[in-house]
Design a protein around this nucleic acid. Sequence first.
DNA 1: TCCTTATTTATAATCATTCTTAATAAAGAA
DNA 2: TTCTTTATTAAGAATGATTATAAATAAGGA
Lengths: 153, 153
Amino acid sequence: METRIDRIKKQLHAASYKLTPQREATVRILLNHEEDHLSAEDVYLLVKDIAPEIGLATVYRTLELLTELKIVDKINFGDGVSRYDLRQEGAAHFHHHLVCIECGAVDEIQEDLLEDVEAVVEKRWNFQIKDHRLTFHGICWRCHDRSSQDPSQ
Amino acid sequence: METRIDRIKKQLHAASYKLTPQREATVRILLNHEEDHLSAEDVYLLVKDIAPEIGLATVYRTLELLTELKIVDKINFGDGVSRYDLRQEGAAHFHHHLVCIECGAVDEIQEDLLEDVEAVVEKRWNFQIKDHRLTFHGICWRCHDRSSQDPSQ
DNA sequence: TCCTTATTTATAATCATTCTTAATAAAGAA
DNA sequence: TTCTTTATTAAGAATGATTATAAATAAGGA
Ligand SMILES: [Mn+2]
Ligand SMILES: [Mn+2]
Ligand SMILES: [Zn+2]
Ligand SMILES: [Zn+2]
């Protein structure tokens, strides 16, 4: 069976890049933390466990390369750091995020939901959409539950 | 007639802040560049023309304060800097952006367009939406026109 | 006036990210 | 193999945006 790593390797080769040990270690960390939204520093600290000799600049370079190849998406939630998010395989569009302003949790929406909006934008603004970024800020279901159960509220 | 500045002054007072000369100068620059998406450095250089003694840190502090009071929105288009965008008066929601990957132009969409999507998100994910960020990346109408007229294409 | 607090300036410090340079690894030709 | 070229990396310096600090100033109230 062809693994996810194998397919990423092919994508690199198709663009005439190699899957070096450092790059492979970085990709493995991303695969093992698909749910998370890791910063370059986060990735660096995690990848050091499996490849202790790696340098921070290499992690940055690798993440930049993976972003170029659309294997990961670089996102920014407004704190000072960029975060990196593995794309779903075969996903045409980047998924959306729910950022809780109470607890800081970041949940994902894999459904597209924007088809209609994009059709309107393409037509009315004559803008050919290639990608999108959509983030909602608000109160997550956990904080919701907490405050409705809390008798002090 | 009550001006836009007067109303912003009231918003500051309501939160027990003063509209100091430095803050007023900063707000005036933002008002004079509503269409643009200025970085703190951009604002600083422009505000120096009308208030040469102002410091960069004060501009940062003022922009942060205005963001807190929801008078401006802080946005990030992926280049390394934060940009500041005056909110439309009375706008319930932050407007959307079209970023051209060819020429770098940033156009605005003032229409909401997200009502239906937000209704779905609130219901299905039990998430109480307070704000949103939506940016489309693609080819703007100008670049579109250019390439369809260009015989070398 | 004196006292207290808010605000600003100037500069230093911090932090994320990028750049530079020399070393290393891989690949190809002969 | 050996030579040559190119890609990649590590280490640390440099950069650039943003924030923190400390002293000065302005404003407001008793
Ligand atoms: Mn995500
Ligand atoms: Mn805008
Ligand atoms: Zn929450
Ligand atoms: Zn364009």
